Computed example of a mutant assay.
Amino acid sequence: MTSSNEQPASGTPAGGMPGGLTPAGRPDSGLSFVPVVWLLFVMAWSVYWLVSARWLFESSGLPDRVFYFVLGGLAFDIVTIVWGLYLLGLALSRSARFPRHFTIWQITTIAWRLAEQVYALTVPDFTVSARELAIAATEIVIGLFCIYLLRRRDEAKAFYARPEAQAPSAFSSIVAALAGIILGAVVGTVAGFALGAGIAEATDISCFEGGCGYFAVFIGLAGLVVGAIGGGVLSVWLVHRRSRKVAIGGR
């Protein structure tokens, strides 16, 4: 008969940790990064809509219900980008706060998408296609799956397990994010426009009706998107990296 000293402790799997958590030394399968990748995609999509929204202010004759609906969506895109950069800082520092804050962000995003679809379906000025409904449904399903990965998988709980004290304040992250977005957007736009102009000249793109100019502007806008996201992510990462160094040095 096996003695009690040889039995695993109550609630502790053999060779595991209390509560079934993944041991700290166990490599992560990669699923813990899925919410971060999804967050980056949503932020990039929001930046794209902000950049391409110039037509909204150049158009005339739009019904007020359509104009303010789109304007509200652009405002939410700005919130998504700033909030997302803060979440990226938490993720990069593997803060224990990331799963909870990501869940709040994702639930808010899902609620907004549902509200958009309900509004578009009930207001006669809109025409909603099956494709748009399918895209919205896919976004919601992916968001719910990301919440499941962070809230239900022990692997993610072990991966994002750094003490909360190591993460900087939300205010510091937001200020760093805004500064990085602005600087990155400026650098990315200038570099993209210069690159586009260089490619247009090297490949002899026709300038008939401004073709070469439109190409350079397109590359410049792409540089703006990449630079804004890259600058925001880099600045938030630097703030969190500095915070970790201070926390380690103060021990």
Rank of each mutant, 00 (worst) to 15 (best):
A185T: 03
G143A: 09
A120F: 05
V186G: 03
W105E: 08
A191L: 07
R241D: 15
V226G: 05
L133V: 13
S10A: 12
V34Q: 07
F159W: 14
P63H: 08
L87P: 10
Q106T: 13
S173C: 09
P163V: 06
P163C: 06
G230M: 10
T203N: 03
P124W: 05
I219L: 12
E164T: 06
P35I: 09
V175S: 10
D64N: 15
G72A: 11
I78Y: 01
A136V: 13
L74V: 02
I107R: 03
L121V: 00
F145Y: 15
V239K: 12
R54K: 08
S4F: 14
G230R: 03
A185C: 02
L195R: 01
P63N: 13
Y214N: 02
T189I: 04
S46H: 13
V42E: 14
G84C: 12
I219C: 02
S93E: 15
T203G: 00
V118P: 00
L178A: 11
R65Y: 02
A120C: 06
F145K: 02
L114I: 14
A176Y: 09
F159L: 07
A9W: 02
A44G: 15
S172A: 14
G231P: 09
T138E: 13
Y214T: 02
I182D: 01
A134C: 08
E58Q: 09
S60R: 00
V47E: 08
Q166R: 08
F159V: 05
Y86N: 12
V82G: 06
L150C: 08
E201R: 05
A120Q: 12
M17I: 01
W112E: 09
L62R: 09
G213V: 07
G230V: 08
D28W: 04
G192R: 06
G15R: 01
L92M: 15
D77W: 06
R113S: 07
L221P: 00
I174P: 00
T122S: 08
F102W: 12
R151W: 09
I142E: 09
L88K: 11
G196S: 02
P63E: 15
G223S: 03
P35Y: 14
R251K: 08
